[in-house]
Amino acid sequence: MKGYFSAASAALSVGVGLLASGLSAEPVTVQSCDRTLTFDEVPQRAVSHDVNLTEMMLALELTDHMVGYTGISGWKTLSEYLREGLGELPELAPRYPSREVLLDADVDFLFAGWNYGMRVGGEVTPETLERFGIQVYELTESCIHIMDRDPVTMDDMYNDLRNLARIFRVDERAETLIADYEQQLADITARVDMEEPVRVFVYDSGEDSPFTTGRYAMGHAMIEAAGGHNIMFDVESSWTQVAWEPVVERDPELIVIVNYGEVTAEQKKNFMRRNSAFEDIDAVRNDRFLVLEYDEITPGPRNIEAIRQLADAVVDVRQ
């Protein structure tokens, strides 16, 4: 895997000066889903939820302003590069954080999302935390759970990086990262045939009914960027359950397996290989599976390299 922190590291000397000046800078305003947030000061006791959101904080080199993270070890293994980036920062909760956990850590900022650490009507939401002086920035991809929005694009991930950088007054770091990502993406898309997209199905989990990505999940944007066609493009949701019948009918040529949790990627492949109901699916018949990690297919710095893998698989299908 390529070092996706390299672009931020190259801008470190600039970013340090910006960060220092940000402590006494003018207030900044950002849009978070359907809310407008104003930050008078740089957050000093921030927490991020989930592995992909935490990787965004690391890519912008914001650990000096963090008191911890949540929602990783309960579902996923902390990888070596993530462990190294987090250093001594503690995991405050292995799964969803409670309000008590955040208050005990004297948190002043939470980077989370709907179904990424927060549930509609739950005890941890922007509204329930506001009274305690905790400001919440919501992952852009997750806004579909509380408001109408357009289908997800790669700009959603860039938007989050830019907004986080504004909040922490490290704008140049985000722009350096995004310029690098956009160049990489342009190089990748130049290799694929957008006129004849490959039919792609994302298989996250579930045997009775599969959990997959609709048009409001980052996986949809990644498939399109790689020259593919998400066969569940018409599902008006982000990550959701569907029936197997339309999967069989739409006959994917490539199946993306999301690797996380107790059921391994190989077990998911074998479930599809050994089920007679799937034997006529093009991808199963030709054993075309691509395994992506959870943090590669949810919004974050690893999306670009994952699109490269998708594009390679798409090109292989058409050869």
Rank of each mutant, 00 (worst) to 15 (best):
L86E: 05
D50W: 12
G74L: 07
G121M: 02
I257S: 06
S276F: 05
V16T: 12
Y216R: 06
F271L: 10
S237P: 01
I167E: 10
E55N: 12
R302T: 02
D295V: 06
F233Q: 09
H49R: 00
R215C: 01
V258T: 14
I297Y: 05
L86K: 05
R95V: 13
G17W: 10
G206Q: 00
A25D: 14
I72H: 05
R318N: 10
I304T: 14
E207L: 06
L37F: 09
F168W: 08
D150K: 13
V120P: 03
S142Y: 04
L290H: 06
S142V: 01
E195N: 13
P252N: 07
V67L: 00
P151S: 07
L53C: 08
A7Y: 08
E141Y: 04
E141T: 07
V30W: 08
E279K: 12
P197L: 04
L164A: 05
A313H: 00
R119Y: 14
T212H: 08
S209Y: 11
V284M: 04
D40S: 13
W114L: 10
P151T: 08
D180S: 13
Y96Q: 13
D193A: 03
P210F: 12
L12M: 12
L164P: 06
A7S: 13
A7D: 10
K269C: 13
A11L: 08
V136C: 11
N52C: 06
A243I: 04
A186M: 06
M57W: 06
L164S: 10
E80L: 10
E84D: 14
D193M: 06
L82Q: 13
N230W: 02
R250P: 01
T189Q: 15
G214R: 03
T128C: 05
F201E: 03
S32F: 02
T240F: 09
D40C: 03
L161K: 08
L310D: 08
K269N: 08
E55V: 03
D316Q: 15
E26F: 09
N259M: 05
L18H: 11
D171W: 01
P126F: 09
S21W: 05
F289Y: 14
L53A: 14
L78G: 05
V192R: 04
T77A: 15
V67K: 03
N159D: 15
S276Q: 14
Q184M: 09
V16C: 07
S276K: 13
V107E: 10
A8G: 15
F168A: 10
A112K: 03
E266I: 09
F289A: 05
R215L: 03
V67F: 06
N52K: 02
V263S: 04
Q44Y: 05
T212W: 02
L177E: 02
V315M: 15
V124G: 10
R95W: 11
M272S: 06
H49A: 00
V291I: 15
P210I: 02
E88K: 15
N163M: 00
I167Q: 01
D34M: 01
T264K: 01
A46W: 02
F5C: 11
V315R: 12
S24A: 13
M218L: 09
E249N: 09
E245G: 07
P94I: 06
V315I: 15
K76E: 15
N115V: 09
W244F: 04
H229M: 11
S209P: 00
D208S: 12
M118L: 09
